[in-house]
């Protein structure tokens, strides 16, 4: 429990929400993309989050269950993963990226991005950012209240 630990923990949450917003923005921007630089189809990205644990410490040397990291140190983005499910198939033989042969001939594979889901995730990310900001405000007010005691 440091002077600014709650503020710093909330800051990690805010950074993560910014990254989620970036990824959502990329998904929405590429919602109609039919080709990528590496030749494959565009696939939706998702951020995988991981908790940053506190320092491991033995509360009780006789009970292994008491291995406890204490209060965590926030959250971090582990990696950005691609969702490899098949995208939306639209029949359009005149499209330059239409599939030429096989059972899906004439179809164009659009990305597996669902705009509605992305918008919901965007609202979720911006509300979470707001919540972390409120935590910082609350922590700041507690600090200032504590200083008022000395007055």
């Amino acid at each position: 429990m440091g002077l600014f630990s709650s503020i710093n923990i909330a800051a990690t949450g805010m950074s993560v929400e910014r990254l989620r917003t970036d990824v959502i923005s990329d998904n929405i921007a590429n919602a109609s993309t039919t080709r990528t630089a590496d030749g494959g189809k565009f696939k939706k990205s998702t951020v995988i989050l991981e908790a940053i644990s506190g320092d491991l410490q033995y509360r009780n040397p006789f009970v292994p269950e008491s291995i406890d990291g204490g209060v965590g140190k926030g959250v971090r983005a582990l990696r950005v993963e691609k969702d490899t499910t098949q995208g939306r198939m639209v029949y359009d033989p005149t499209h330059p990226d239409a599939i030429q042969s096989g059972p899906n001939a004439g179809y164009v594979e659009y990305p597996n991005v669902n705009i509605v889901n992305e918008m919901v995730n965007l609202i979720s990310a911006s509300r979470a950012y707001e919540a972390n900001s409120t935590v910082i405000q609350g922590s700041k007010e507690m600090f200032q209240q504590a200083l008022q005691i000395g007055k």
Binding site: L3, F4, I7, N8, A11, S133, I136, K140, F143, Q144
Partner: peptide, 13 residues
């Protein structure tokens, strides 16, 4: 937010 948090920490200190 990193900038504003750094400013808030400086202010509180």
């Amino acid at each position: 937010h990193d900038v504003t948090i750094a400013m808030a920490e400086a202010n509180l200190s």
